[in-house]
């Protein structure tokens, strides 16, 4: 399995192919529906540097005392499709979630050199073990939908869409 470190460069993106299994380490940011709506409505005040960044679509359970984070698996990505091309345009290099992306998002990934990664859904307890640090950096009032800055180590992911237009879910479609 390839080991990949954030922030992501165009050079790294070009090495990733649809179907690759990777282990991701470094800083990633969480954002779901509400956080996306807020970010895109005020692009000048994005709470983190988008350049080379990775967004993880998750809304964790509250952390028990002594724990870094609660259960934190991926949510369905299609709900963020409306907002994603704009963020890719501003330097976002990868998104992590589950399920198919829209044509617009796939086109934008080709254009701006970015990838879409899937984590296994429904294994939030296991994935929480990859999180070494978690800090809320914006919108704490959104609760589980706040933006967390996460430091992850060896998070197991699969490349669904690479920057060449390949889609692992399409390849897997039995018509």
């Amino acid at each position: 399995m390839k080991k990949i470190q954030t922030p992501l460069t165009e050079k790294t993106i070009k090495t990733l192919k649809s179907g690759d299994e990777i282990l991701l380490s470094g800083i990633i940011y969480t954002a779901r529906d509400s956080a996306h709506k807020r970010i895109v409505s005020n692009l000048k005040k994005i709470p983190f540097n988008l350049k080379g960044s990775v967004i993880y679509y998750t809304g964790p359970t509250p952390a028990k005392s002594g724990h870094i984070i609660g259960s934190c698996g991926p949510t369905s990505s299609y709900r963020m499709d409306k907002y994603t091309p704009e963020l890719l345009k501003h330097g976002l290099k990868a998104t992590i979630g589950k399920g198919k992306r829209s044509k617009e998002v796939i086109e934008a990934m080709k254009k701006y050199k970015a990838v879409y990664l899937a984590a296994t859904g429904g294994i939030g307890a296991l994935l929480s073990k990859c999180v070494k640090k978690a800090v809320i950096i914006a919108f704490p009032e959104l609760g589980c939908e706040a933006i967390y800055k996460l430091e992850v180590k060896n998070m197991p992911l699969i490349v669904i869409n690479d920057n060449y237009g390949n889609d692992l879910y399409e390849k897997n479609d039995i018509k």
Binding site: G59, T61, K64, S71, G122, I123, G124, A125
Partner: peptide, 28 residues
């Protein structure tokens, strides 16, 4: 192989959730 790995992850997750009392899925 991918199917096997995912099923292994799901079963491992069930163990971690039970033993460490971490919710099985974040969407409770």
């Amino acid at each position: 192989t991918k199917a096997k790995n995912i099923l292994k992850q799901i079963l491992e997750n069930a163990k971690v959730a039970k033993n460490e009392k971490i919710p099985i899925c974040q969407d409770t």
